[in-house]
C-alpha cells in the first residue's frame, strides 16, 4: 500500500488534472460534438479528430507517469519525484535560496492559503463593491496578513489603488468595475 504523501499527490495530480480533463473532453465529444454532428467524418467536418489524438496522448502518458511514480516509490521507498532531476524546483520559489528559517513552514502555508482566500473573495466582490472599495480592502487585508502594520497597510493600499486606478482608468481609458456603490475612476 502506498503511504508516501508525495506519491499519492503525484497520482492525484495525474488522475484529477490530466486524466480528468481527458475524461471530460471525451464526455463532451460523445454528447455535445455528436449533437452538432461534428464527431465523425473527414478532416473538414470532424472537429473531434485532433482533440481525440490529444486525449489518447494524455491517457497514455498519464498512465506512464502514474506507473513511474509508483515504481520510483517502490525502488527508493522514499519520496518519489518521477524522473525529476535534482536541480528542479523544490520548496523555495527563488533559485538558490534555502527555506526561510525565521517562519515555520506551516505558518507560511497558512498565510498562502489566507492570501488565496482573500484573493478569491476579491474576485467575487469586485463586481459588487466596485474597484476602489474592493481593491483597497483586498490590498489592506493582504498587506496585514503578510505582516505589515495596519497604518502602513492602509496608506500603501490606498496609494496603490489610486495609482493603478489612474493609470488604467484615466490614461488607458479602461472602465474599471463600478459596483453597486457607484464609485470609480473617470475614464
Amino acid at each position: 500500500m502506498i503511504k508516501n504523501k508525495r506519491v499519492i499527490g503525484e497520482i492525484a495530480v495525474v488522475a484529477l488534472i490530466f486524466l480528468g480533463v481527458a475524461g471530460g473532453a471525451l464526455q463532451q465529444i460523445a454528447t455535445s460534438f455528436a449533437a452538432q454532428n461534428a464527431s465523425s467524418g473527414g478532416p473538414l467536418k470532424n472537429a473531434a479528430m485532433f482533440p481525440q489524438l490529444l486525449i489518447a496522448i494524455l491517457v497514455v502518458l498519464g498512465c506512464v507517469q502514474i506507473g513511474m511514480s509508483i515504481r520510483t516509490h517502490r525502488l527508493s521507498n522514499g519520496p518519489a519525484t518521477g524522473e525529476t532531476r535534482p536541480d528542479a524546483r523544490s520548496e523555495s520559489a527563488v533559485p538558490g535560496e534555502p527555506p526561510d528559517p525565521a517562519e515555520p513552514r506551516a505558518v507560511l502555508h497558512r498565510k498562502a492559503i489566507i492570501c488565496l482566500v482573500i484573493f478569491a473573495a476579491y474576485l467575487g466582490g469586485v463586481g459588487i463593491l466596485g474597484y476602489p472599495v474592493a481593491t483597497f480592502t483586498m490590498l489592506f487585508a493582504m498587506f496585514f496578513v503578510l505582516g505589515t502594520s495596519p497604518l502602513v497597510a492602509s496608506i500603501v493600499a490606498f496609494l496603490a489603488m489610486v495609482t493603478v486606478g489612474i493609470v488604467f482608468g484615466m490614461l488607458l481609458n479602461v472602465v474599471l468595475p463600478i459596483g453597486i456603490i457607484g464609485i470609480s475612476f473617470p475614464s
Binding site: 495525474v14 488534472i17 490530466f18 480533463v21 481527458a22 473532453a25 485532433f50 482533440p51 490529444l54 486525449i55 496522448i57 494524455l58 502518458l61 498519464g62 506512464v64 507517469q65 513511474m68 519525484t81 518521477g82 524522473e83 525529476t84 532531476r85 536541480d87 528542479a88 524546483r89
Partner: peptide, 20 residues
C-alpha cells in the same frame, strides 16, 4: 524541460487540448 520529460509532454498536450 528542466523537470521530467513525460511531465513536459503531459503539460504540452494539455496546452494543445485547451487550445481547441
Amino acid at each position: 524541460s528542466q523537470e521530467s520529460t513525460i511531465k513536459g509532454f503531459l503539460t504540452g498536450a494539455l496546452g494543445l487540448l485547451l487550445a481547441t
